[in-house]
Amino acid sequence: MSFAFAVAAVFLLFFGVGVRRDRRRFGNAVYLGLAVTFVGIALLAGIEDAPPGVAETVMICGLLVLGLGPVVLAGLLTANGVKMVRKEGRRPANLLSLLAGLGMFGVMVLAVVAATTDSWALHMFVLTLVLLLGYVSFLFVCFVGYAFLYGRMRIRRDADYVVVLGSGLIGGRRVPPLLASRLDRGRAVYERLAAYERREGDAPVLVVSGGQGPDEALPESHAMADYLVERGFPPGAVVREDRSRTTEENMLFSKELMERDRPGSSCVIVTNNFHAFRAAITARRAGVNGQVVGSPTAAYFWPSATIREFVAVFLQYKVVNLGICLTLILLGVLAWASR
């Protein structure tokens, strides 16, 4: 038990150092997840010393979570997926929670079939699949947990720019509710920065970032600027970045504008809350000195959006992650071949 607590303390130290160096590192999420995991192991190891009845209660609760938790989660994801399709259409990005829920049901059925047969190959296949899902699930929980913490960090007060990321237009011209929430949050952040005492001529600037898609009549940034100005935002405080097509380009092209006018400047980047942590990782990789904050998003949109964000982050570290996944598959093949 003491060993597990010691390991947890080491990972917690790594987490603290990582956050102090740069809050936008995905490694911080992994360190925190490992620290919590080893604390849990230490607590379980010491459960036998707990008062009478506590160990039994913990065991029953654990069995219920392990037995019913996946079924409940799969059901909720499937139901959310159906709702997403009804509200947002059948685009691939809107199917993620539905596919995740159905996939979980499929794995559970496969595990039951494997448990009732004597097929060594099927046993090894299910075991390998469970190990792969365990690794990915651990990273997913780390991602969600740290993204929650990151989204609640205090907004910096010394930023020179507020950068609002684009997200597509309705009918090629109009700002949709999702983007409007970003713009409203960006304006609130801008006004908060402007309220602090600043040197003369050093007022913050709001950058709207988004180029023109193939189905859009004008660049997203132009529609975003029009949305703000029509609601009383000062036109001279808005700068349009109208070349970007991806989050990476949002960061790079906005950085060019900021460095051109105020070299060495800092910024607060505004996106939706489900996208904030991935945008922070992208900003770090692009060399942007910026904190990312999120705007509110409809609850039903969260599961699919969060899965999409995690997949994107997972693939940003594909050498490590795919290497570990291939190693687990290789171990499963070797175990099957050794029979």
Rank of each mutant, 00 (worst) to 15 (best):
N289F: 11
F148P: 00
L66V: 15
E216Y: 10
G40K: 07
G186F: 02
K87F: 13
D160F: 08
R182C: 02
I329L: 15
R156Q: 06
A121P: 04
F14C: 15
G40C: 12
I269M: 10
L179Q: 10
E309L: 00
Y227E: 06
L77G: 05
A42M: 03
L131E: 12
G171H: 12
G186Y: 04
G166S: 06
L315R: 11
V72A: 13
V71H: 02
A159F: 07
M1Y: 00
V130K: 08
V144C: 15
Y196P: 00
G211Y: 05
V239T: 12
G290Q: 05
V36G: 09
M108H: 02
A74H: 05
I41L: 10
V113N: 05
L127E: 06
R174P: 00
Y227K: 06
V313Q: 07
A280D: 08
D158F: 02
C142S: 14
A114M: 09
V58T: 09
I307W: 05
T37A: 15
L66K: 04
H222F: 10
L252M: 11
G134S: 09
A312V: 03
R157M: 02
G166V: 07
V109Y: 10
L133D: 08
P234S: 09
L129F: 09
P219V: 00
N272W: 05
V36C: 12
R192M: 12
L44Y: 07
N28D: 13
G332V: 03
L68Q: 02
D242R: 11
Q316F: 13
G40P: 07
V130F: 00
L218Q: 14
P177W: 09
D49W: 00
S221A: 15
L77S: 06
R199F: 09
K255L: 15
R231D: 10
V208Q: 05
V144F: 01
R285S: 12
G81A: 08
V7D: 06
P234T: 02
G213W: 01
T297R: 06
A55M: 07
D118V: 12
A45W: 01
I170F: 05
E220M: 04
S254M: 04
F143V: 00
L95E: 06
V205W: 01
P204V: 02
V72R: 03
A8Q: 07
A217Y: 15
S338N: 14
V39I: 14
V130N: 10
A45L: 13
G106E: 11
